[in-house]
Amino acid sequence: MLRIHCPVCGLRDETEFTYGGDATVRRPAMDDPEPAHWLDYVFTRDNPRGPHREYWHHLGGCRQWLVVERDTLTHAMGETGLAREMAPLEMEP
């Protein structure tokens, strides 16, 4: 079981969180009409071996979305913080 450092609640069990996918993808601007951008955002993912940034939702705690750096090979946990501070912003229009 992973233990995840929530900046609000401290070191907590993985079972309190839900996984939210790749935290490196950038959401296109709301009024972006280009389907390729949206297809990329929704469907295209890398599958890295090693450190990877991903979203975790502290559902059983403060309900904050976190960005967690996790090594996909060793499960070593790296930098962790609130998504509202670390997540990529919407793309420029």
Binding site: R27, Y55, R63, W65, L82, A83, R84, A87, P88
Partner: peptide, 13 residues
């Protein structure tokens, strides 16, 4: 709810 929170804490913060 989780999806709304996600959008509000990431792309639409």
């Amino acid at each position: 709810l989780a999806n709304a929170e996600h959008l509000l804490q990431t792309a639409w913060r």
